[in-house]
Computed example of a mutant assay.
Amino acid sequence: MLHVSRSTFSALTLCALTLSGCFGGSQDGLERAVITGTVSFDGQPLPEGSIQFIPDLDAKGQRIHGKAVQAIITNGVYSLEADQGPVVGANKIMVNATRKTGKFQNFDGVKTEIMQQYIPAKYNADSTLRYEVKAGENTADFSLQTR
């Protein structure tokens, strides 16, 4: 029978937890954080959509490493746990939401309704939104306007 001391067991447990993404870590080795918040559009909670956090530039103008992460917005609320959260540091924010247009197209014999992005480009394709993600837990609320 293998005998492991209590201190060795504790050290191995700590290593396993760190490697599994606890303490804000991630599989890519970058520090990530918990983030929750709300998104409103023209004063109303955004019914449904998505929000992306895209690593931006640091204070020296260097690109922050890491992949963009996305959360689903439901009734104006979104959240991401640390293991799937945004990279700590400056992030560009993109918010997307679509609605039905009442127009249809045929794709390989299947009639499909055309969806339209209704959030202005300044919040997605040409986003001016930024958020500084801190280590730990973050709350980031965004109030978007048509104009």
Rank of each mutant, 00 (worst) to 15 (best):
V110E: 15
Q27M: 05
L129Y: 14
S50K: 12
K60W: 12
I72H: 12
F104S: 04
L80C: 04
Q27K: 04
A140Y: 02
V39A: 04
T13P: 01
P47D: 11
P55S: 00
R99Y: 02
G29D: 03
K103I: 13
V95Y: 09
V77E: 06
A33Y: 02
G136D: 15
G102D: 11
I72L: 11
K67D: 12
L144T: 11
S143G: 07
E48A: 10
R6W: 06
E31D: 07
G37D: 14
R32S: 10
L30P: 07
T101P: 09
F142V: 14
A82D: 03
A140P: 00
L17M: 15
L30H: 07
Q116W: 02
A121W: 03
A68Q: 07
K92T: 15
L19A: 15
K60D: 11
Q44Y: 13
R99T: 10
K111N: 03
C22V: 07
G85Q: 11
Q105E: 02
A33P: 04
A82K: 05
T8H: 07
K103T: 15
V87H: 00
S50D: 11
Q116L: 10
V87D: 00
R6L: 06
A16I: 05
Q145H: 10
N91D: 02
V4Y: 03
P55T: 01
N124G: 08
N91G: 00
A135P: 13
K103S: 15
K100C: 04
D83S: 05
S79C: 01
S20A: 13
P45R: 06
G109S: 07
T13S: 09
G25A: 03
T98Q: 13
T36L: 11
E137H: 03
N106L: 14
G85A: 04
Y123V: 00
Q62K: 10
T8R: 08
N124I: 08
S26P: 13
S10H: 07
P47E: 13
K122Q: 08
N138E: 06
I54P: 09
A11W: 04
I35A: 10
D141M: 10
E81A: 08
F23T: 00
A135K: 14
I54R: 09
V69W: 11
G43H: 14
T128M: 08
M115W: 10
A90V: 08
I64A: 03
A16W: 06
G66H: 02
K111V: 08
V69M: 02
R6H: 05
G76Y: 09
S20Q: 01
Q105D: 01
V110N: 10
V95W: 15
V39R: 09
G24N: 00
L19Y: 10
N91K: 01
A82H: 09
L144Y: 12
K67C: 04
T8D: 15
E137Y: 09
S20T: 07
V34N: 13
F41L: 00
A11S: 05
R6N: 09
S50Q: 11
G29H: 01
T139E: 13
A121Y: 02
K111C: 00
G25W: 06
S143F: 13
